[in-house]
Simulated scan of single mutants.
Amino acid sequence: MSTQLPGETDVTYTFDDVSVVMGTYNEEDAIGTVLSDVADVTDDRAEVVCVDGSSDRTAEIAREHGARVIEQEPQGYGVAVREAVLAADRPVVVTTDCDDTYPMERLPDFLDRINQGYDVVSGDRLYYGAETMPAFNRLGNHAFALLASLLVGERIHDTTTGMRAYRRELIQQIHWTENTGLSAELLLRPLVREYDVCEIPIEYGERKGETTLDPISGGLAIGKSIVKVCLEERLR
């Protein structure tokens, strides 16, 4: 993974060029806080896209905060996020989760790295320890990063983080296939294809609301996705 600056680009993006996207599922406890933070940090200039399959007030709250809500039947994390990234209209796409675990105040740092020339900027939750993350999940995320690093041949610190910035043309050029493992795929395919990718340390907060992902079955699905995606890319 690149640690050197790839060089300044001809275009300098602002928050008017940013879409913040997320898949949402029954996150009424946190979605308002997340969207308020996005609005505060970006001076309400970023587009927000939520792909929602909730049965609670998540979609209603999102619309009240000015988000564009795309409703779909619940089909899993990756299906929602894939729809969200592909629905974004602006040249810089930032993914995040809607459970208030990711630091929206770091959005300027992600945008700055895109302006430095990176194609993907990935938030490393594990750098500072991620002590708010359940210990089993934290161990699993270290294992995923080790597995992916071995398969890719480059050191990766956090394979499954939900907070990243991408150039929209990259999102449009790659065919995304995974569901539970989409967060890993969104990093690994660009990395193996030699796009300019960097990781930056981020703080990871305590989740608001209950998670719907089973750590055992979800972890197995993510591990299988990492192996599948890496093998597919190596055989391209």
Rank of each mutant, 00 (worst) to 15 (best):
L151C: 04
A184F: 00
I216S: 14
H175A: 05
T24E: 13
G23V: 00
C198L: 04
Q72T: 13
P215S: 07
T14I: 03
D99M: 10
R90I: 00
L213C: 05
N115H: 07
T95H: 04
T9F: 01
V152M: 07
L139G: 14
I226F: 05
E27H: 12
L170K: 10
A221C: 03
K208C: 13
V192I: 13
N141A: 12
D44A: 10
P108T: 03
V229M: 00
V94H: 08
I200E: 11
I156D: 06
R207S: 06
N26T: 02
G205W: 04
E131H: 14
L146F: 05
G209P: 08
A145Q: 05
D196R: 15
I70D: 11
V92Y: 01
I222L: 10
L146S: 12
G53N: 04
A39S: 07
E27K: 14
N179R: 15
D158P: 06
V94D: 02
V79Q: 13
E199P: 08
L220P: 09
V79R: 15
T42K: 13
H175R: 15
I216G: 11
S149V: 03
A59Q: 03
V79N: 15
F110Q: 10
T180K: 15
K228Y: 07
V48R: 14
V21M: 09
D109L: 09
E233I: 01
E131I: 04
V34C: 07
V81M: 14
D119K: 10
S225M: 01
R234H: 15
S225C: 08
R125E: 11
A84Y: 03
S149R: 13
E203I: 01
Q172P: 02
F144P: 02
